[in-house]
Design a protein around this nucleic acid. Structure first.
Lengths: 109, 109
DNA sequence: AAAAGATGTTAGATTTCCTTACGCAAGTAT
DNA sequence: ATACTTGCGTAAGGAAATCTAACATCTTTT
């Protein structure tokens, strides 16, 4: 039923690896979390875990920071994009619903 | 020029996360490495790092172990499959070479 | 000038991981 | 039947990685 979360969204990467992949310092990565730009999961012991999507997001953030954009504005942009994505998903779902209603297409896993 | 290593093959996963993803014990995971079934990279400090491909491989290994197959035999099967994959890649490359020769297709990144 | 933003750095505590080694049950070979 | 080999569990001691909190600094905003 629900879209399978691909590898890209699985939170499995430690902050150290994250540092290597993005070139950012751990301090920066934690700070961007504090500013609510990124949302890692936590291990049972409290260690942060990120996904490859997070890697991409962090790189975008880093670019904007370099351009002098403040975390505050970046957050707004992220929220805006998230909403756009959601709308896209909703439209897709609606269309799917219509198709289902008209043709009774069954879910295939 | 060289195929971009997708997320699936990037070695970024710690053994603890590996344990969660596969359901195997760390002891087992290390043991299968000792038996040369799996080949993690290492951090500068010596910590093991695995890829999502390794996760899949480990699950297959676990299945075979359950079926009573010994690590020795599993290793042979893995080697055999690796060779098959390589042959496939080589054929693909050869075909590509012919195409390049005949039509001068340029590499596009 | 004062406040806020964006980091570096340090310190002490926790968590995670490493290797080595011993133990043991079940299977295999001699 | 006895002696290895396989496939783990488990424990110990140490090293690596991460955590939070705090203080310092420099730059921008207000």
């Amino acid at each position: 039923m629900d879209k399978d979360i691909s590898y890209k969204d699985k939170k499995v990467i430690s902050i150290g690896v994250m540092r290597e992949l993005t070139g950012l310092s751990e301090r920066q990565i934690r700070y961007y979390e504090e500013r609510k730009l990124i949302f890692p999961e936590r291990s049972s012991g409290g260690n942060r875990k990120y996904s490859f999507s997070d890697v991409e997001l962090l790189m975008e953030i880093a670019n904007k920071i370099e351009d002098g954009v403040q975390t505050f504005e970046i957050r707004q942009e992220i929220v805006k994009e998230k909403k756009k994505e959601e709308q896209k998903a909703i439209r897709k779902k609606m269309l799917q619903g219509q198709l289902n209603a008209q043709f009774g297409i069954k879910n295939y896993k």
